[in-house]
Amino acid sequence: MEVRMRIFRFNPEKDRKPHYDVFTVEAQPTDRVLDVLEWIRGDVDGTLAFRRSCAHGVCGSDAMRINGRNYLACKVLLRDLGTTEITVEPLLGLPVIKDLIVDMGPFFEHYKTVMPYLVNDELPADGKERLQSPEQRERFDDTTKCILCAACTTSCPSFWSNGQYVGPAAIVNAHRFIFDSRDQAAVERLEILNDQFGVWRCRTAFNCTEACPREIKITQAIAEVKRAIQTGRVE
């Protein structure tokens, strides 16, 4: 099949403003969007810049906007797009550095503010594992899947309008610890998120849930955090 790929271009060393380049590519329906980008960079235009690594949806490097929606370029097959006209653009809401590469700095800074690590200094007397029932483990399973690709946060209208909002990804990672039976810092995290730039910025647009390549029920996780703040109980 022949696809027409329209790619956002911006080279800060040359361009005053961005433009789009169009590449016509002969590809297989089962090719990933990433395969096409790789081919363009390798064989047509070496200056095209984008990030990628694992190429199968687990490392989170290649989140980008494809036909107006956030995806990992390695998890979208051409046949699944339903069209041969493909527009590829960088994530919204983070500064563009070059072509499809955005500055991930602000995203990781938000992530770090929610204490995204287990807090519990008490170790079992026998030195072995802490006990946790399968049900307790299941309680936070969904939010352990996050790969920090930023597809959710950069699809969020509240984040677009104010980049100080901590964003869905940070809340997902707070949720992962708040609801972990082994953790002891839920109160602190809930306090951090009960802030004008915390969970209340979420307007339940569900964009994040739709954008998540790991199919995390993000809006639900945010709602659970909101409820925990309101009730003062983690259930």
Binding site: C54, H56, V58, C59, G60, I147
Partner: peptide, 10 residues
């Protein structure tokens, strides 16, 4: 890479 992109994750 950003450390969380490393191949251990696969």
């Amino acid at each position: 890479l950003y450390p969380t992109r490393s191949h251990t994750g696969a």
